[in-house]
Structures are given as C-alpha cells and as structure tokens.
Design a protein around this nucleic acid. Structure first.
Lengths: 110, 110
DNA sequence: TTAAATAATCGTAATATTGCGATACAATAG
DNA sequence: CTATTGTATCGCAATATTACGATTATTTAA
C-alpha cells in the first residue's frame, strides 16, 4: 500500500500525469522558465538564480530530464540544459487535449 | 527539511505547480475525464468506474476540489461533482502560457 | 601531475502522497 | 425513530518527494 497504482490506468492518463508531475513543483517551473528566457540554455547559473542548493537543483534537473522535457549537453566542465522541443510539444498537446475536452462538452453542472 | 520551499518562489509559479500537482496522478486525470465525458456530472459512479476504493476516490476528489478544479453539489444522499469552469480555464491559461513561452523564444540548444 | 571548477550522486532526515479498512456522518426511505 | 444508502473522515502503513551536506567523478587550467 502507498504506491501509485499506475498499472490500473491507461497509458495516456499516465503520460499526462507524468508530464504534470514534472511541472508540479515551483522550482521546476522556475527552471523551465529560465531555460526559455535565455534563448540559449544555461547550466549552473540556475543554482545562482534559485534559492536552492546545488544538489537539489541537480535533482530537479534530473527529474525534468527523466520526464523528457529537457536535455543536457556536457560542455567541458559545465553542462548546458535546454528544452527538448519534441517532448515539450508532446506534453503541450496532451495537456491541452485534456483541457479542451471540456470545451467540447459544454456540460453544465448538476 | 523535506518540505517544499514554496515561499521562495513566485505566486504564479506556485499556482502553475499547484494545478499541475492536481493533474499529477492518473486517477485524477481519469476522474476529470469522466466528469467531462458525461456532460452532466456524476458522484459515486466514479467509484464503480475506477479501480480504487471509495475512500481513496473520495480523497482524490477532495484534492481536485482543493485545487479548485471541481465543485461538488450535495443532492440528497449523493454528491454530484463537476468541473469548475472558471478555475478550469484559469488553469488552462496558466499552463498554456508556460508552454507557449517556448514558442516565443525559439531558442536552439547549446 | 596537481589543483580548481562544475556537476552528479550518496546518505540521511523531514515531510507528503497514496491507498485502504473501519468508522462516522448525513439524508432519505420505511 | 430506525435502517439504509452514499460519502467523508480517521488512523495506519507503505512509498515517494524534497532538501541538504558531503562525497565523488570529470574536465579544464596551471
């Protein structure tokens, strides 16, 4: 008990939930915004910009990478992260699909 | 240590993260889809449709309600849930805003 | 080679989430 | 009033997340 019963739900619902989970922390939202603001990507500058330790930032980056939303390029002693365009759009489509499903069925409540 | 440092981030980023968190579980995604599919809303039928116990469903509904995404109307001994249109659109706008920020700055990576 | 810089990982602690059974509560039916 | 139905809440156990300091690579610079 306690573990999420992912198996019991559709692949699509799990994907949506997975992308949502990646966005479900303000630090990760802030990181993504930073990556977008600087049209080129950054690395440990994120650590300077956010109020979290290096190791914590590193973990958040790892999660965003695991979700597929970002990529990391090793450049010498630094690592350069950026949005993964393809997955970013995939996430956008899935989440938007969920939201627009509502407009389709303009149901009124109870 | 271990608690999320919400205070350290912007209100907006926290809102985005909050909505995302509500969508970050396949059961909640499934619930929202059900509420939309039946243009009118349901209640404990959700329990019959999903592979989770009544108490677990109830908790997920509570979270969705806390996030503002759904409303619940007591109807006799039953409770009828439905999407909260206003908050739903607010969530949609915030999340879309995040996604489209990328298109604006067609940055290429590293 | 050695030192410095940068990032990833490990270990640990605190807290949050997920899930369920049992129980409590509310409203209707009889 | 009492029984039934439908839902919420409580208490617990299992697991996951968040955060950090310390350590471990890894690569460049000296």
């Amino acid at each position: 008990m306690g573990a999420t019963k992912s198996d019991e739900f559709s692949v699509k619902d799990n994907k949506i939930a997975g992308y949502a989970k990646a966005l479900a922390h303000p630090a990760r939202v802030a990181i993504l915004k930073l990556l977008m603001k600087r049209q080129a990507c950054i690395c440990g500058d994120i650590v300077d910009e956010l109020p979290l330790s290096q190791s914590t930032i590193s973990q958040h980056l790892k999660e965003l990478k695991a979700a597929g939303l970002i990529q990391g390029d090793v450049e010498g002693t630094k690592v350069c992260y950026c949005i993964d365009e393809k997955e970013w759009h995939a996430a956008q489509e899935l989440l938007m699909g969920l939201f627009t499903t509502y407009d389709a069925s303009k149901g009124k409540c109870c």
